[in-house]
Protein backbone atom coordinates (compact mmCIF):
# COMPACT_ATOMS: atom_id res chain seq x y z
CA UNK A 1 0.00 0.00 0.00
CA UNK A 2 1.34 3.37 -0.89
CA UNK A 3 1.25 5.85 1.94
CA UNK A 4 -0.01 9.33 1.25
CA UNK A 5 2.69 11.96 1.59
CA UNK A 6 2.17 14.51 4.35
CA UNK A 7 3.47 17.32 2.21
CA UNK A 8 3.93 17.16 -1.50
CA UNK A 9 5.64 19.83 -3.58
CA UNK A 10 4.78 19.70 -7.27
CA UNK A 11 7.14 21.69 -9.48
CA UNK A 12 7.09 24.76 -7.25
CA UNK A 13 8.77 27.95 -8.37
CA UNK A 14 9.63 31.23 -6.77
CA UNK A 15 10.73 33.96 -9.13
CA UNK A 16 11.50 37.32 -7.56
CA UNK A 17 11.23 40.30 -9.92
CA UNK A 18 14.31 42.53 -10.00
CA UNK A 19 14.29 46.02 -11.45
CA UNK A 20 11.60 46.99 -13.89
CA UNK A 21 11.42 47.68 -17.58
CA UNK A 22 9.47 50.26 -19.55
CA UNK A 23 6.19 51.33 -17.85
CA UNK A 24 7.12 49.38 -14.69
CA UNK A 25 6.88 46.08 -16.50
CA UNK A 26 8.70 43.34 -14.60
CA UNK A 27 10.91 41.65 -17.09
CA UNK A 28 13.83 40.28 -15.14
CA UNK A 29 13.60 37.60 -12.48
CA UNK A 30 15.79 35.92 -9.91
CA UNK A 31 14.81 32.29 -10.08
CA UNK A 32 15.37 31.45 -6.42
CA UNK A 33 13.45 28.19 -6.69
CA UNK A 34 12.91 26.85 -10.16
CA UNK A 35 10.80 23.73 -10.28
CA UNK A 36 11.21 21.70 -7.10
CA UNK A 37 9.20 18.51 -6.55
CA UNK A 38 9.49 16.68 -3.25
CA UNK A 39 7.37 14.41 -1.05
CA UNK A 40 7.65 14.30 2.72
CA UNK A 41 5.99 11.31 4.42
CA UNK A 42 4.70 11.20 8.00
CA UNK A 43 7.40 10.60 10.59
CA UNK A 44 10.38 11.05 8.31
CA UNK A 45 13.10 13.66 8.03
CA UNK A 46 14.05 15.05 4.68
CA UNK A 47 17.31 16.97 4.60
CA UNK A 48 17.84 19.82 2.16
CA UNK A 49 21.47 20.74 1.49
CA UNK A 50 23.22 23.14 -0.81
CA UNK A 51 25.38 26.23 -0.85
CA UNK A 52 24.04 29.63 0.17
CA UNK A 53 21.82 31.08 -2.50
CA UNK A 54 20.65 27.73 -3.86
CA UNK A 55 17.06 28.33 -2.75
CA UNK A 56 16.82 25.93 0.17
CA UNK A 57 15.47 28.46 2.67
CA UNK A 58 12.99 29.87 0.15
CA UNK A 59 11.68 26.33 -0.38
CA UNK A 60 11.25 25.91 3.38
CA UNK A 61 9.40 29.21 3.69
CA UNK A 62 7.01 28.21 0.93
CA UNK A 63 6.24 24.92 2.65
CA UNK A 64 5.02 26.66 5.82
CA UNK A 65 3.20 29.32 3.82
CA UNK A 66 5.44 32.24 4.72
CA UNK A 67 5.95 32.90 1.07
CA UNK A 68 3.69 32.02 -1.86
CA UNK A 69 5.09 30.10 -4.79
CA UNK A 70 4.90 31.87 -8.15
CA UNK A 71 4.30 28.54 -9.87
CA UNK A 72 3.45 24.94 -9.06
CA UNK A 73 1.39 23.51 -6.24
CA UNK A 74 1.96 22.46 -2.63
CA UNK A 75 -0.30 19.76 -1.21
CA UNK A 76 -0.78 19.12 2.49
CA UNK A 77 -2.35 15.75 3.22
CA UNK A 78 -3.64 15.61 -0.34
CA UNK A 79 -5.25 19.05 -0.26
CA UNK A 80 -3.89 22.10 -2.08
CA UNK A 81 -2.32 24.56 0.32
CA UNK A 82 -4.16 27.59 -1.04
CA UNK A 83 -7.50 25.80 -0.68
CA UNK A 84 -7.24 26.10 3.07
CA UNK A 85 -9.66 28.91 3.91
CA UNK A 86 -7.36 30.62 6.33
CA UNK A 87 -3.63 30.25 6.62
CA UNK A 88 -4.29 30.00 10.34
CA UNK A 89 -5.63 26.47 10.21
CA UNK A 90 -2.39 25.42 8.57
CA UNK A 91 -0.33 26.90 11.35
CA UNK A 92 -1.45 24.13 13.63
CA UNK A 93 0.20 21.55 11.46
CA UNK A 94 3.12 23.39 9.93
CA UNK A 95 5.66 25.10 12.14
CA UNK A 96 9.15 26.46 11.72
CA UNK A 97 12.37 26.72 13.73
CA UNK A 98 14.66 29.53 12.66
CA UNK A 99 18.41 29.81 12.34
CA UNK A 100 19.13 32.74 14.59
CA UNK A 101 17.89 32.17 18.12
CA UNK A 102 18.69 35.79 18.93
CA UNK A 103 16.43 37.52 16.45
CA UNK A 104 13.60 34.98 16.36
CA UNK A 105 12.42 35.53 19.94
CA UNK A 106 10.72 38.78 20.96
CA UNK A 107 13.03 40.34 23.58
CA UNK A 108 10.15 42.08 25.36
CA UNK A 109 8.04 38.99 25.99
CA UNK A 110 8.60 36.50 28.77
CA UNK A 111 9.48 32.98 27.74
CA UNK A 112 6.07 31.70 28.87
CA UNK A 113 4.34 34.32 26.69
CA UNK A 114 6.51 33.45 23.70
CA UNK A 115 5.73 29.76 23.95
CA UNK A 116 2.04 30.34 24.67
CA UNK A 117 1.58 32.76 21.79
CA UNK A 118 0.69 30.11 19.18
CA UNK A 119 -1.87 28.70 21.66
CA UNK A 120 -3.38 32.14 22.18
CA UNK A 121 -3.54 32.85 18.45
CA UNK A 122 -5.33 29.57 17.85
CA UNK A 123 -7.55 30.00 20.93
CA UNK A 124 -6.45 26.76 22.54
CA UNK A 125 -7.41 26.22 26.20
CA UNK A 126 -7.83 28.62 29.08
CA UNK A 127 -5.03 30.70 30.53
CA UNK A 128 -4.27 28.17 33.26
CA UNK A 129 -4.35 25.26 30.81
CA UNK A 130 -1.98 27.14 28.56
CA UNK A 131 0.40 27.80 31.43
CA UNK A 132 0.36 24.09 32.21
CA UNK A 133 1.13 23.30 28.60
CA UNK A 134 4.00 25.80 28.62
CA UNK A 135 5.49 24.04 31.65
CA UNK A 136 5.20 20.69 29.89
CA UNK A 137 6.86 22.10 26.79
CA UNK A 138 9.70 23.69 28.75
CA UNK A 139 10.35 20.38 30.41
CA UNK A 140 10.15 18.58 27.05
CA UNK A 141 12.99 20.70 25.66
CA UNK A 142 15.16 20.29 28.74
CA UNK A 143 14.38 23.50 30.61
CA UNK A 144 12.44 24.00 33.84
CA UNK A 145 9.07 25.65 34.46
CA UNK A 146 10.62 28.53 36.42
CA UNK A 147 12.39 29.57 33.21
CA UNK A 148 8.98 30.69 31.96
CA UNK A 149 9.12 33.93 33.89
CA UNK A 150 12.40 35.02 32.38
CA UNK A 151 13.21 36.99 29.25
CA UNK A 152 15.12 35.67 26.21
CA UNK A 153 18.17 37.79 27.03
CA UNK A 154 18.81 35.62 30.09
CA UNK A 155 19.41 32.53 27.96
CA UNK A 156 22.39 31.27 25.99
CA UNK A 157 22.21 30.48 22.27
CA UNK A 158 21.55 26.79 22.79
CA UNK A 159 18.85 27.45 25.38
CA UNK A 160 17.20 29.98 23.08
CA UNK A 161 17.10 27.40 20.33
CA UNK A 162 15.34 25.10 22.81
CA UNK A 163 12.77 27.86 23.37
CA UNK A 164 12.26 28.11 19.61
CA UNK A 165 11.66 24.36 19.52
CA UNK A 166 9.18 24.55 22.43
CA UNK A 167 7.24 27.28 20.60
CA UNK A 168 7.16 25.22 17.42
CA UNK A 169 5.88 22.19 19.35
CA UNK A 170 3.11 24.08 21.19
CA UNK A 171 0.36 23.22 18.70
CA UNK A 172 1.55 19.65 18.13
CA UNK A 173 2.31 20.16 14.44
CA UNK A 174 2.75 17.36 11.95
CA UNK A 175 5.70 18.97 10.18
CA UNK A 176 8.41 21.30 11.42
CA UNK A 177 10.62 23.10 8.94
CA UNK A 178 14.01 23.51 10.60
CA UNK A 179 15.93 26.25 8.80
CA UNK A 180 19.59 25.91 9.82
CA UNK A 181 18.65 25.22 13.45
CA UNK A 182 22.19 24.43 14.61
CA UNK A 183 24.52 26.49 12.43
CA UNK A 184 24.66 29.40 14.88
CA UNK A 185 25.56 27.15 17.82
CA UNK A 186 28.82 25.85 19.29
CA UNK A 187 29.82 22.29 18.45
CA UNK A 188 29.02 20.81 21.86
CA UNK A 189 25.62 22.54 21.89
CA UNK A 190 24.82 21.46 18.33
CA UNK A 191 24.93 17.83 19.39
CA UNK A 192 22.53 18.53 22.28
CA UNK A 193 19.99 20.18 19.95
CA UNK A 194 20.28 17.45 17.30
CA UNK A 195 19.64 14.80 19.95
CA UNK A 196 16.66 16.74 21.25
CA UNK A 197 15.11 17.04 17.79
CA UNK A 198 15.53 13.32 17.24
CA UNK A 199 14.03 12.42 20.63
CA UNK A 200 11.01 14.62 19.96
CA UNK A 201 10.50 12.97 16.61
CA UNK A 202 10.61 9.50 18.16
CA UNK A 203 8.07 10.54 20.81
CA UNK A 204 5.64 12.49 18.67
CA UNK A 205 6.09 10.95 15.23
CA UNK A 206 6.32 14.28 13.42
CA UNK A 207 8.17 15.00 10.20
CA UNK A 208 11.02 17.44 9.67
CA UNK A 209 12.22 19.30 6.65
CA UNK A 210 15.77 19.91 7.81
CA UNK A 211 17.55 22.67 5.92
CA UNK A 212 21.26 23.14 6.54
CA UNK A 213 24.57 23.65 4.85
CA UNK A 214 26.37 21.63 7.52
CA UNK A 215 26.39 18.25 5.85
CA UNK A 216 27.33 16.23 8.95
CA UNK A 217 24.29 17.49 10.86
CA UNK A 218 21.99 16.75 7.92
CA UNK A 219 23.41 13.27 7.63
CA UNK A 220 22.89 12.61 11.30
CA UNK A 221 19.24 13.54 11.40
CA UNK A 222 17.81 12.82 7.94
CA UNK A 223 16.27 9.73 6.36
CA UNK A 224 16.35 11.14 2.85
CA UNK A 225 18.42 13.98 1.46
CA UNK A 226 17.81 16.37 -1.41
CA UNK A 227 20.78 18.28 -2.82
CA UNK A 228 19.94 21.66 -4.35
CA UNK A 229 21.91 23.74 -6.81
CA UNK A 230 20.69 27.07 -8.22
CA UNK A 231 17.03 26.55 -7.39
CA UNK A 232 16.77 22.95 -8.50
CA UNK A 233 17.08 19.57 -6.85
CA UNK A 234 19.94 17.81 -8.61
CA UNK A 235 19.98 14.65 -6.52
CA UNK A 236 17.51 13.04 -4.14
CA UNK A 237 18.27 9.78 -2.37
CA UNK A 238 18.11 7.80 0.82
CA UNK A 239 20.76 8.93 3.22
CA UNK A 240 22.83 5.73 3.03
CA UNK A 241 22.71 5.69 -0.74
CA UNK A 242 23.66 9.35 -1.07
CA UNK A 243 26.71 9.03 1.13
CA UNK A 244 27.90 5.66 -0.12
CA UNK A 245 27.18 6.18 -3.75
CA UNK A 246 26.77 9.83 -4.68
CA UNK A 247 25.97 10.07 -8.38
CA UNK A 248 25.78 13.72 -9.37
CA UNK A 249 29.22 15.33 -9.83
CA UNK A 250 28.10 18.23 -7.63
CA UNK A 251 27.12 15.92 -4.77
CA UNK A 252 30.49 14.20 -5.09
CA UNK A 253 32.32 17.51 -4.93
CA UNK A 254 30.21 18.72 -2.01
CA UNK A 255 30.91 15.60 0.02
CA UNK A 256 34.61 15.59 -0.74
CA UNK A 257 34.90 19.26 0.28
CA UNK A 258 33.78 18.53 3.84
CA UNK A 259 36.88 18.52 6.04
CA UNK A 260 37.78 15.02 7.18
CA UNK A 261 38.06 14.63 10.95
CA UNK A 262 41.21 12.51 10.66
CA UNK A 263 44.49 14.33 10.03
CA UNK A 264 45.88 11.25 8.29
CA UNK A 265 43.30 11.66 5.56
CA UNK A 266 44.60 15.11 4.74
CA UNK A 267 46.20 14.12 1.48
CA UNK A 268 43.26 12.08 0.20
CA UNK A 269 42.04 12.74 -3.29
CA UNK A 270 39.56 15.55 -3.28
CA UNK A 271 37.45 17.25 -5.87
CA UNK A 272 37.92 20.97 -5.40
CA UNK A 273 35.43 22.94 -7.42
CA UNK A 274 36.71 26.06 -9.07
CA UNK A 275 34.79 29.30 -9.07
CA UNK A 276 31.65 30.33 -7.27
CA UNK A 277 27.97 29.65 -7.53
CA UNK A 278 26.67 31.51 -10.62
CA UNK A 279 24.13 34.26 -9.98
CA UNK A 280 20.56 32.94 -9.88
CA UNK A 281 19.53 36.10 -11.77
CA UNK A 282 21.51 34.91 -14.74
CA UNK A 283 21.90 31.12 -14.52
CA UNK A 284 23.96 29.40 -17.19
CA UNK A 285 22.11 27.78 -20.10
CA UNK A 286 21.78 24.02 -20.19
CA UNK A 287 22.77 22.24 -17.00
CA UNK A 288 23.25 24.98 -14.41
CA UNK A 289 26.28 23.17 -12.97
CA UNK A 290 28.24 22.91 -16.22
CA UNK A 291 30.36 26.00 -15.51
CA UNK A 292 31.96 24.31 -12.47
CA UNK A 293 31.51 20.66 -13.35
CA UNK A 294 34.77 18.67 -13.64
CA UNK A 295 33.19 16.19 -16.08
CA UNK A 296 31.08 18.56 -18.18
CA UNK A 297 30.48 17.52 -21.77
CA UNK A 298 29.66 19.59 -24.84
CA UNK A 299 25.91 18.89 -24.70
CA UNK A 300 25.73 19.98 -21.03
CA UNK A 301 25.87 23.56 -22.26
CA UNK A 302 22.66 23.07 -24.20
CA UNK A 303 20.54 20.44 -22.50
CA UNK A 304 19.05 20.92 -19.05
CA UNK A 305 18.88 17.43 -17.52
CA UNK A 306 15.73 16.14 -15.82
CA UNK A 307 15.57 14.59 -12.37
CA UNK A 308 15.30 10.90 -13.29
CA UNK A 309 15.42 7.71 -11.24
CA UNK A 310 18.90 6.19 -11.14
CA UNK A 311 17.98 3.41 -8.72
CA UNK A 312 14.99 2.40 -6.59
CA UNK A 313 15.88 4.95 -3.96
CA UNK A 314 17.48 7.75 -5.86
CA UNK A 315 16.89 10.44 -8.45
CA UNK A 316 19.63 12.32 -10.27
CA UNK A 317 19.59 15.20 -12.72
CA UNK A 318 22.68 14.71 -14.85
CA UNK A 319 23.16 13.91 -18.52
CA UNK A 320 25.69 11.21 -17.62
CA UNK A 321 22.83 9.23 -16.14
CA UNK A 322 20.14 10.28 -18.58
CA UNK A 323 21.94 8.33 -21.29
CA UNK A 324 22.11 5.25 -19.14
CA UNK A 325 18.42 5.49 -18.30
CA UNK A 326 17.57 5.82 -21.99
CA UNK A 327 19.65 2.78 -22.87
Amino acid sequence: MKQQPLVSLKDIKKHFPVGSGLFGKKNHFVKAVDGVSLDIYPGETVGLVGESGCGKSTTGRMVVGLSDPTGGEIYFEGKKLNEYKAKKSLGKNLQMIFQDPYSSLNPRMTVADIIAEPLVLHKVGTASERRKRVDELLERVGLASYHGNRYPIEFSGGQRQRLGIARALALQPKLIVCDEPVSALDVSIQAQILNLLKEIQNDMGLSYLFIAHGIQAVKHISDKIAVMYLGKIIEFANKEELFENPRHPYTKALLSAVPHPDPKMRNRERIILTGDLPSPANPPAGCSFHTRCPVAMEQCKRIDPNLLPTSKQSLTACLLFEDKVAN
Binding site: V187, A191, H220, L255
Partner: peptide, 13 residues
Protein backbone atom coordinates in the same frame (compact mmCIF):
# COMPACT_ATOMS: atom_id res chain seq x y z
CA UNK B 1 30.01 15.57 19.46
CA UNK B 2 30.78 16.02 15.76
CA UNK B 3 28.37 13.88 13.71
CA UNK B 4 30.21 11.36 11.55
CA UNK B 5 30.31 11.99 7.82
CA UNK B 6 31.59 8.53 6.98
CA UNK B 7 30.05 5.25 8.00
CA UNK B 8 26.71 4.68 9.71
CA UNK B 9 25.16 7.40 11.87
CA UNK B 10 24.80 6.92 15.57
CA UNK B 11 21.27 7.04 16.96
CA UNK B 12 22.36 9.53 19.58
CA UNK B 13 25.32 11.89 19.48
Amino acid sequence: SVPALYGPSKEKL
